[in-house]
Write a protein that binds this DNA or RNA. Structure first.
Lengths: 134, 134
DNA sequence: TTGCTCCTCACGTCACGTGAGGTGGC
DNA sequence: TTGCTCCTCACGTCACGTGAGGTGGC
């Protein structure tokens, strides 16, 4: 038996890019605007991302098609961090709840709209096929 | 009985914006890059869009979430025009067919991916709700 | 004449893309 | 030492947004 801790998983930016489907430049940009700051750096100056960092980047990736500005995404992420920190009954906690609530509403509506657009786009694809056979 | 023709429907840019859900600036931009040039102008210099112009703008609107560069959309639109002009057996017609075929493939794949992203985004929305009830 | 909608520049912005030139660890 | 991956500027680009200043027709 050993007291050795399992090594915490850390990912370099290239691997994070592969895992999330985001470009390296996009990941760096998200750091520039304060969206996802890598939880550590190597002895050199390489960014090292934790599994949680990667999960957050995945979420951002899936939300991209909904077209929220990065500034708004940052507001949302901060609100969620506040809630996760268990400060629900503080005034910051209440504000955070309100932010998340509003965001949830807008998001649900945009998902609905996006689905409609996709359906139309698909109809257009069928039209393309028809013309090819036409 | 009269020889009078029914007036051809023409729309000013503001009405086109409402009908398509695109901004006026976006519609002008699409003209700047040669995507949709209004079929006429008023005696003043107001842009006048035909129902076909409006239909094309609607198609562009629905395809926006798929993230094709406008230059590529222009290539596609031109290819479709070539096919619609019935020049299928000319070499231009064959090239047009090839363009449309490739586009169709990429488009179908992107629709699939976009649907996946939306599903994930929706899951995230549910997560937001859960945290609100926490 | 007043409102409203439209017009043409032209600069600004957001979200990255794309080199240039340099460093770090297997 | 060579490769590969990463680094930091910093300018470029794409798709518009946003005034500024002006005109046209009910």
């Amino acid at each position: 038996m050993t007291t050795e801790q399992p090594p915490v998983e850390q990912f370099q930016i290239g691997e994070v890019a592969e895992r999330t489907g985001l470009s390296i430049r996009t990941i760096r940009h998200y750091e520039e605007v304060g969206l996802v700051v890598p939880s550590s750096r190597s002895t050199g100056r390489f960014r090292l991302y934790s599994p949680q960092d990667v999960a957050r980047l995945r979420t951002l990736r899936h939300m991209k098609p909904l077209g929220f500005p990065l500034e708004e995404m940052r507001t949302l992420m901060e609100a969620m961090d506040t809630i996760a920190a268990g400060r629900a009954s503080t005034s910051a906690g209440e504000d955070a709840h309100e932010v998340v609530r509003r965001f949830h509403g807008v998001m649900t509506e945009r998902v609905r709209q996006a689905r409609e657009h996709l359906t139309r786009a698909e109809e257009f694809a069928v039209e393309l096929e028809d013309r090819l056979r036409g």
